[in-house]
């Protein structure tokens, strides 16, 4: 498993190197969460579960694309076409380009209202499908996050799991403070976990939700997790510039 994650991270770095684009540290931040959603068959396991995941922090999409490649949903050629002209995989996901992309995200604060509408449509049709969304913690500053929580409560959307990638990356700007406490008015089902510990992630995902509230998982993560180099702020939106740098980055990736 550790080895798998390292290999996927290297693929992320390779795609960024080839395209001279991408947000590598943000992708490393959410990779374990997306990996567990795939591996635990919460998303994309069957056709009826095709559209039940939204990566609201769209800039972390390389992690998602790498998982689509890893699970053979897309070819290597498609994966490495990342951000090139006419690629179906852009710097932020476009729902009209691939059936595995449920919403076009990139501008923060759009994913939660959209997935709430999707979950409510199924609720109306008495479908038992479950929905998963990953929000960035900074994204929680967007007003729509809190507006959506009111909507989710009003319609009792307990078929929704909200995972927050809590990496504190912009904590010095406007701090979110005690997020669990702040969200506790909207859900009685909030779990705080280590977002890189797969056992903790699986436990949180598999725990049944018997309440009428959405399941909220606050996953404490490290931006650029697994590589000291990527943990530096300067890497937010930067790509490996030379073959030598690429190799150095490969060497730096540990689990």
């Amino acid at each position: 498993m550790k080895n798998e994650i390292i290999q996927i991270k290297k693929k992320i770095v390779e795609a960024s190197y080839k395209s001279r684009e991408g947000h590598i540290p943000s992708s490393f931040s959410v990779l374990d969460l997306i990996y567990c959603l795939f591996k635990g068959r919460y998303i994309f396991s069957k056709n009826k579960y095709l559209n039940n995941f939204v990566l609201s922090k769209g800039h972390g999409c390389l992690a998602f694309y790498a998982m689509l490649f890893y699970y053979k949903k897309i070819s290597k050629k498609v994966f490495l076409s990342f951000c090139s002209k006419n690629s179906i995989l852009g710097g932020h996901p476009d729902m009209n380009k691939s059936r595995y992309i449920s919403a076009s995200t990139g501008s923060l604060g759009h994913g939660l209202p959209i997935i709430s509408g999707m979950a409510f449509a199924d609720h109306l049709n008495n479908l038992k499908k479950k929905y998963y969304i990953i929000l960035g913690d900074q994204e929680c500053l967007e007003g729509t996050t809190w507006e959506s929580m009111f909507i989710i409560n009003k319609f009792g959307l307990n078929n929704l799991t909200i995972i927050i990638d809590r990496n504190f990356s912009r904590n010095e700007a406007i701090p979110l403070g005690n997020l669990k406490k702040k969200l506790s008015g909207f859900s009685k089902n909030i779990q705080s976990i280590n977002g890189h510990n797969h056992i903790q992630i699986y436990n949180a995902l598999s725990k049944p939700n018997k309440s009428s509230f959405p399941k909220v998982i606050i996953a404490k993560t490290i931006k650029g997790n697994g590589s000291k180099i990527f943990q530096h702020n300067s890497w937010h939106h930067r790509f490996p510039k030379s073959y030598q740098e690429l190799n150095n980055l490969y060497q730096s990736i540990k689990n």
């Binding site: 209202p113 709430s116 509408g117 999707m118 409510f120 959506s148």
Partner: peptide, 9 residues
């Protein structure tokens, strides 16, 4: 956004 989610489904 909620409306668009309904429309997706």
């Amino acid at each position: 956004g909620f409306a668009s989610g309904l429309a997706i489904n």
